[in-house]
Structure formats: structure tokens, C-alpha cells
Simulated assay, not measured.
Amino acid sequence: MAALFQGIKGIIYYLDDVLISGRTEEEHNTRLVKVLDIILENGLKANMNKRKNKRFEWGEAQERSFEKLKIKMVEKPILNCFNEKLDIILTVDASNEGIGGVLLQMTDDVEKPILFLSRRFSSTEKNYSTIEREALAVKFGLEKCKEYLIGRRFILYTDHKPLVDLFKKENKELMMSPRLQRWLILGNFDFEIRFRAGKQNCLPDILSRLFKKDSANKDTVINSLEYIEEEEKLNSKVIRALKIDKREEPITFWWPNMIDGVVKFINSCDTCQRCNTRFDKTTNELQSIPARTKVWSQIGVNMCTLTEREDGYKYIAVAVDYFGKYVVAMPLKDKTAKSISKFLYLLLFTYGKAKIQINDQGREFVNEVSTNYHKLMGTMQRVTSAYHPELGRSSRKRI
């Protein structure tokens, strides 16, 4: 369209629409003829249904709109026009829901907004760590404002101090995860990153939280556990919902910082602390293992998990003699009953038969293969009580 109607004054075109104007009816008709000639010469067609023959009338509604427009034209706008001569500031922030940013310029020692930015996190991005979300906010802000920023020195503010410290360190690329390296190796931008406390970083913070669930559409909004305690009716309603009372229709509610609030409530609840089984369990007096007077008469067997290795070994089986404290260890690629039985036969053929073997209740020790082995060898197998690792301390200390 631009190439076809180039040089004709008084026309505005957008996609397939053309608006023709003139100061007089004669001038308008002259321009209209020129446009129609070009359409015919290029094999185009005009849609006559788009012509508007309705007479335009200036009434009270038009007058109000005109007066309002005049007022708006002389009022100071919220957004300022970009000025290449002024200092540039980009401030960004990330919440659990999204990203916010503001492009600013210093005018009369006051930060004036040029552009507001925000977007919601994807389901994947919500799982990013805090520093990754804050870094993504930086990346988002730079990409959206690149026309204003490339080729100019500017200041970038974030309220996440670890990100600022990371940028200031030498060889920072070596300290970043691959994801951060892709985002923050920013050769096209010339900026100084600075820390700005959250209280002073309000605009991007608000923009990043625009996507929170609308509490006005929820049955109940819970700001804190203290609030629940003060409101008996609300408390009972929430409890019924949490217990999923099937006799009633479950309510929905939004509870900001729910995990922190629940933890704080439980830790400060006297009844919770008294009834917690961790603080109310009773233990019988520990029975000492009778001292042995003969080597290899009683042994303790246990397992140790290794870090990942290239040779495929993942575990170490350990046996300790309760008399001489002698330790035998063997690397294993798995902890199946078959592998453990090989270890036990190694002990048998190397050191002889033990009268008593002590181990925990792991399935690698308590199984049909192990039972058959001990019956065949005449060894008494003793297992420690569940959740009492102190009973296998002798073999664990060696691990």
C-alpha cells in the first residue's frame, strides 16, 4: 500500500483500508479520483460496502469528548517521552507468579516512567530457583527495552542482592549454572547493576504480582493464622474445608504464605508440642551386647551408599567383628539378596563361620535367600529394632 499511494497527500492507509481527506470537497474528490485510478491500474478492487454515507452530526456527546480531549492534551501524562540526553534506569523484579519491570529516566532529579513491563511465569518457570527467576526478570527487561538501551550506558536495579554480587565477581561465568550463563552473558548491553531494597522497588514488584489469583472471587481470604484464631466462624469453616467434609460442598480459599504460617502456628502451639510423638516417646533401657571372648564369634553387617562412580559400584557391604573390631568391606553394584549372599560366603570362606550376625531390617538382609543361608550355616541372625539405628552402631561407626 505504501508503494502504491506514495506521493498522494491527505490519505491514511492501514492494511487494506484507505482513508481519504481534503480541506474542501473539490480537493477531496480530486484525491479520491487519483486513488481509484491507481486501484484500477493495479488490478485491485474496492469494497463499496465500506463507504459510509451517514451524515456526521456534532452533538452534546461529541462536544464532551472534544473538551475532555483538550484537557488531556494539556495535562501532564503518566508516561514521559524518551529523551536520549537523559540518564536511563531499568528496574526489574520477580515474584512467585510473574515478572515486572519499569524503564525510567531522570528528569529534574526525579525518576519518570517511560515504559511498564510485566508477564506471567509459565508452569516451568515457576519451578525455577529464586536467583533464576530474578535473572529471568533481568533478561526479560533487557529484551523488551533493547531499542532504548543498546549503545547507551544505563543503570539496572534489582532487589536480589546475590544476583548483584554474582555480576561483580571475576570469572562469574564459571560460577553460573548453564541456564544463567545463557541468560546473563550480555555482550550487547552496557550497564551497571545495583541493589535496591524491596521497599524502594515498588513499581516492578507490583507489576510482577498482577497475576495473583483474584481474592475477590474466592469464598475466603486468609492473611494469617492469627486472623483465623480471632475469627471462630472463619476458623471452623476453614477446618471443615481442610478435613474435606463430604457432607458439605467444599469451600475454596486463597491463603497467602500458607506454609510459613502453618509452621509458625505449629511451633508456637503448646498442645501440638505436647502431643507430638517425637517428644512423647518412651524408650526401654538399652540392653548391652554381651562381651565376646573369641574372634569372629559375633559380627555386625551393614551397607553404605557411594556417590556415583564410573565403574558402576554403588554400595559397600561392611562386616565388623565385635571382639577385635576388625573390618571387612566389599564394593557392590547393587544390594540384592544375591549380592549380599556372595559377601556372606566370602566372609565364611575367609574367616570362618560366625555364631551371631547382627544387621538391620533392610530387605537386602531379611529375605528368603538370607534365611536359607543362616539355616544352612547354623548362624543366628539378629535384626535391630526399626527406627533405632543406634543398635547397629558398631558397624555404622566403621562406615
Results as ranks from 00 to 15, higher is better:
residue 24 T to D: 06
residue 281 K to H: 07
residue 236 S to N: 14
residue 300 G to H: 11
residue 162 P to S: 07
residue 211 F to H: 15
residue 213 K to E: 13
residue 180 L to S: 04
residue 100 G to H: 09
residue 132 E to V: 06
residue 330 M to G: 00
residue 141 G to C: 03
residue 387 Y to G: 04
residue 46 A to Q: 11
residue 398 R to A: 09
residue 58 W to C: 04
residue 128 Y to W: 09
residue 237 K to Q: 13
residue 277 T to Y: 08
residue 147 E to H: 06
residue 255 W to Q: 04
residue 396 R to P: 00
residue 8 I to F: 05
residue 135 A to Q: 04
residue 343 F to M: 04
residue 92 V to C: 13
residue 377 M to G: 00
residue 153 R to C: 02
residue 97 E to Y: 09
residue 137 A to H: 04
residue 209 R to Q: 14
residue 204 P to G: 03
residue 36 L to K: 10
residue 59 G to D: 12
residue 309 R to Y: 03
residue 373 Y to P: 05
residue 81 C to W: 01
residue 176 M to E: 06
residue 146 K to W: 04
residue 365 F to W: 14
residue 350 T to P: 02
residue 71 I to K: 13
residue 279 F to P: 01
residue 9 K to Q: 12
residue 202 C to I: 14
residue 248 E to H: 12
residue 227 Y to T: 04
residue 396 R to L: 09
residue 125 E to G: 12
residue 165 D to A: 09
residue 53 N to T: 03
residue 357 Q to T: 15
residue 281 K to E: 12
residue 263 V to F: 08
residue 19 L to K: 02
residue 80 N to H: 12
residue 326 Y to N: 06
residue 77 P to D: 08
residue 211 F to Q: 13
residue 39 I to E: 02
residue 322 Y to E: 01
residue 133 R to A: 13
residue 374 H to C: 05
residue 147 E to P: 00
residue 66 F to E: 10
residue 276 N to W: 14
residue 334 D to M: 01
residue 224 S to M: 08
residue 194 R to Y: 10
residue 312 G to N: 12
residue 341 S to K: 11
residue 28 H to F: 11
residue 269 C to E: 10
residue 276 N to K: 15
residue 152 R to M: 05
residue 183 W to F: 12
residue 160 H to A: 07
residue 196 R to F: 01
residue 28 H to D: 01
residue 66 F to K: 11
residue 233 K to R: 11
residue 221 V to W: 08
residue 25 E to N: 04
residue 94 A to P: 11
residue 75 E to M: 10
residue 301 V to D: 06
residue 201 N to E: 06
residue 320 V to A: 03
residue 280 D to Q: 13
residue 304 C to Y: 10
residue 49 N to T: 14
residue 29 N to L: 14
residue 310 E to G: 00
residue 185 I to S: 09
residue 245 D to W: 10
residue 56 F to C: 07
residue 234 L to R: 14
residue 61 A to F: 01
residue 268 S to M: 03
residue 19 L to N: 00
residue 94 A to M: 09
residue 281 K to D: 06
residue 305 T to V: 14
residue 260 D to E: 15
residue 203 L to I: 15
residue 279 F to Q: 12
residue 279 F to M: 03
residue 33 V to T: 11
residue 27 E to Q: 14
residue 199 K to S: 05
residue 89 I to H: 08
residue 340 I to R: 01
residue 334 D to I: 01
residue 50 K to G: 06
residue 374 H to S: 00
residue 266 I to D: 04
residue 164 V to S: 01
residue 223 N to G: 11
residue 279 F to W: 02
residue 197 A to R: 11
residue 309 R to M: 12
residue 332 L to A: 07
residue 262 V to H: 00
residue 195 F to S: 00
residue 354 A to L: 03
residue 333 K to C: 12
residue 155 I to H: 06
residue 11 I to C: 13
residue 287 Q to A: 08
residue 49 N to V: 13
residue 39 I to W: 02
residue 242 L to T: 09
residue 336 T to Y: 07
residue 333 K to D: 05
residue 135 A to Y: 03
residue 84 E to H: 05
residue 10 G to V: 04
residue 38 I to D: 09
residue 151 G to P: 07
residue 89 I to F: 13
residue 246 K to W: 09
residue 110 V to G: 02
residue 199 K to L: 08
residue 289 I to K: 10
residue 287 Q to W: 07
residue 305 T to N: 08
residue 283 T to S: 04
residue 363 R to P: 00
residue 384 T to A: 14
residue 304 C to Q: 12
residue 218 K to Y: 13
residue 226 E to W: 07
residue 371 T to S: 09
residue 16 D to Y: 05
residue 119 R to V: 06
